[in-house]
Amino acid sequence: MTSEILTRATTASSEQDEIVLVGRARRRDAIFAGLGLFILFVAMAFLLALIADLFVDGFSRIDMAFLTDFPSRRPERSGILSAWVGTCLVMFVTAMLAIPLGIAAGLYLEEYAPKNWLTDIIEINVTNLAGVPSIIYGLLALGFFVYLAGLGRSVMVAGMVLALLILPIVIVATREAVRSIPQMIREGAYGIGADKWQTMWHYILPAARPGILTGAIVGLSRAIGETAPIITIGALTFIAFLPPAPVQPDFPFVNFDWLHAPFTVMPIQMFNWISRPQAAFHVNAAATGVVLLIMTLGMNAIAIWIRFRLRRRIGL
């Protein structure tokens, strides 16, 4: 197009030609901007249609009984009690593993890692793991945790595999948060005699906390919705009992039997209900989807809010 303009500009003697040419280029420019805006609206309309469809189909189905009933053969008496309890327990395990491990790995890569081949290998692995399909993690958990380590198809294995899955998200968030801390904070800490770990613990980690928190929340919201890896480890789709309670009235007051209990989670319950032919079960699926959406979108809203506040604070 450039050469076209140049040759036209030199050969065409009349000003009229140039005006036409510029006018056409401007028109194309405006059309393209309109096209971008149009695609943006199409994408947003798709998102809204998806959310609206789910709410229309399922919102009226949600009541107290739906949240406190076990799944049943009769759709109108089915509920998601075992599913949401399972989701909470699995998320607890995931958070306990992914957050400390992700922070530690991110901190190492950003603050400690020397520039050598070993660091390169670790970095390439973190990037690659973020791109491995979630169902492959499911196969890893099935072959490695369930059979090789003999942990069974339990809450613990589900929590572990989801932790591995969201680890790259927490690592990347930690690295970005740590990287944005001004160098003078480190120098100030070293200047008053702190060693490396003291600097990290007392200065860097507290300053990076909002960024890390955002990453952890986004990661956990992904983990809540993950279905494929949990199906692969063989989570049951029909569970009409709860895992043993984590707290008990007598010594030692906590009980870890729930870690080994069979379980189901909300996305699996939803998948199970979608797969049934009866339309009444589809309504249950939509209602489960609404609960899931409220949880994941709510968590993301919190993350966006933290990021927004953080930006304002740095702006000051």
Binding site: M44, L47, L54, V218, R222, I224, L292, L293, M299, I304
Partner: peptide
């Protein structure tokens, strides 16, 4: 404004997309 909104696409559980594809 748009970039965080686009991120919400990734926050929606894939099983919900499946529901939307099959039943809507």
């Amino acid at each position: 404004t748009v970039k965080p909104m686009l991120e919400l696409f990734g926050a929606i559980p894939t099983v919900v997309y499946g529901y939307f594809a099959l039943l809507f």
